[in-house]
Design a binder for these strands. Structure first.
Length: 431
RNA sequence: GGUCGGGUGGCAGAGCGGUUGAAUGCACCGGUCUUGAAAACCGGCGUACACGAAAGUGUAUCGGGGGUUCGAAUCCCUCCCCGACCGCCA
């Protein structure tokens, strides 16, 4: 959420920002409603004040007659207040709906426009090199080496689920270990999070648990939802809390399963592991002072690059355009890995994403910081970034590391956890 | 899951229908004293929002929500959380 005062004073700017983000919102209407709300609020407070004065005087009333008269006076005042309050609530509800729909402001350097306007910032250390043999995609590779069982999973949970078997299962754990090890060295606190969370928390982070297009699975008869990312639980961890400024920045590394309905995504390229209902993710999350967030965002991006350079996978980094930022992000960088088996002759596919949400989420979640000796509190900035989303990383690894003989070379950095150099091929071949 | 007991300011801990934003202690900040420190003493010490140039004033806030009442930290309902005991269980 934005600062209400900021909106009132910069209605024009906010309206333009909505347009840049491809969101419809009637900012002028909000300003009108909010202004009405404020004057109503003042009237309500004044009536409350008067009623409080009356109430206090009753305790000292001299006789019953006076007491009764004052009681009546108090009742009248409260009734009047109730009426105003009802008006206030009605208007506030409408204003609130607009307010909550307003997206974050946008970084000056973010490209303006839709998805296609996103700007490439850089490429990874590894170059895309054409393969001089028939390239298989990860589904075929998975089948060939008995790594992924989609059909089995479909029988028990439907489309979008999978069993990882053999080296794929080992790779999942290796990728987690690899990412976590790197992040712990960088001072992140490794954190295994709940895979379910209350609706209130989801909403605070910016996810809508119900509705036709929701990404979120909900648990019947409970106010619990399967998380779509540990960003939800990590952000929620500090909801309602005021942090000492000296404890910032706080860097957390969350490990969780992620569940997504992918409602509305039907028809989009979704073969194999690319768009699944469940995957494991190692996530970076930070709470910072406002002046630290931009550096932290760049740092998150650096770490994502380091992780994929370490795996030897070609990628590019995009500065996401305004129209594709979603609600909370002020700026977003996506890292797209080269996937040789995607499309006709290979395509980039998103593997990580890091967002600077500035104070947008913090305001919703009520996460503040306090500077010792200074009066008042301020909202922290929150940032999130994918370290490794296992399913997509797996696609990139299997497809990029396939060899002319059909085997798959395991990235050097993962070998200590997988326990071998290569999947299939030569004497390694099982069966 | 059951049955009890709890959730009050940074912490500890009173209050259990009226002048209580909340006693008291500790912590913290400022001052006096001291060569310095400690002790002692004096004063201050939550947050959000609104109005105000400011001083300040007002409203809200005692786990969350709702109710009773002129008035609720105090009474009622409900939810959440913590503790104890019992049951169940990887």
């Amino acid at each position: 959420m934005l600062d209400k005062r900021f909106i009132l004073e910069n209605a024009e700017l906010v309206q333009q920002n909505c347009a840049a983000r491809g969101m419809k919102a009637d900012v002028a209407r909000f300003v009108k409603l909010e202004t009405e709300c404020r004057s109503l609020q003042q009237e309500i407070e004044e009536l409350s004040r008067q009623a409080n004065v009356v109430s206090k005087s009753i305790g000292q009333a001299k006789d019953d007659a006076e007491r009764e008269a004052r009681k009546e006076e108090g009742r009248k005042l409260r009734e009047l207040k109730e009426a105003k309050q009802a008006d206030h609530e009605r208007i506030d509800a409408e204003a609130g709906a607009i307010y909550r729909s307003l997206p974050n402001m946008t970084h000056a350097e973010s490209p303006r426009g839709g998805e296609d306007a996103s700007r490439e910032l850089r490429k990874g250390a590894m170059q895309v090199t054409p393969m001089r043999f028939p390239v298989l995609d990860h589904v075929q590779l998975g089948e060939q080496h008995d790594l992924i069982d989609f059909a089995g999973a479909a029988r028990i949970a439907g489309h979008g689920f999978y069993f990882l078997r053999n080296e794929a299962a080992l790779l999942e754990m290796a990728l987690q270990q690899y990412a976590v090890e790197l992040l712990v060295k960088e001072g992140f606190t490794p954190t295994i999070t709940p895979d379910l969370a209350r609706g209130e928390i989801l909403a605070g982070v910016g996810y809508i648990p119900r509705g036709p297009e929701t990404q979120i699975y909900t648990v019947e008869n409970f106010d619990l939802n399967l998380v779509a990312t540990s960003e939800i639980t990590l952000g929620g961890l500090y909801a309602g809390i005021t942090i000492d400024a000296e404890d910032l920045p706080i860097k957390l590394c969350g490990i969780s399963h992620c569940f997504r309905t992918e409602a509305g995504a039907a028809g989009r390229a979704s073969r194999g592991l690319y768009r699944v209902h469940q995957f494991t993710k190692v996530e970076m999350f930070a709470f910072t002072l406002p002046e630290q967030s931009e550096d932290m965002h760049n740092y998150f991006c650096e770490l994502e690059c380091e992780i994929f350079d370490g795996l030897g996978i070609p990628y590019r980094v995009l500065d996401i355009a305004s129209g594709d930022l979603g609600g909370p992000a002020y700026r977003k960088f996506d890292l797209e890995a080269w996937m040789p088996g995607r499309g006709d002759s290979g395509e980039y596919g998103e593997v990580t994403s890091t967002s600077n949400c500035t104070d947008y989420q913090a305001r919703r979640l009520d996460i503040r910081y306090k500077v010792k000796g200074e009066k008042g509190t301020n909202f922290v900035h929150t940032l999130n970034g994918t370290a490794v989303a296992i399913s997509r990383a797996l696609i990139a690894i299997l497809e990029n590391c396939q060899q002319p003989d059909g085997s798959i070379l395991i990235p050097e950095v993962l070998r200590k956890w997988v326990g071998k150099d290569r999947i299939g091929g030569g004497e390694d071949e099982e069966e």
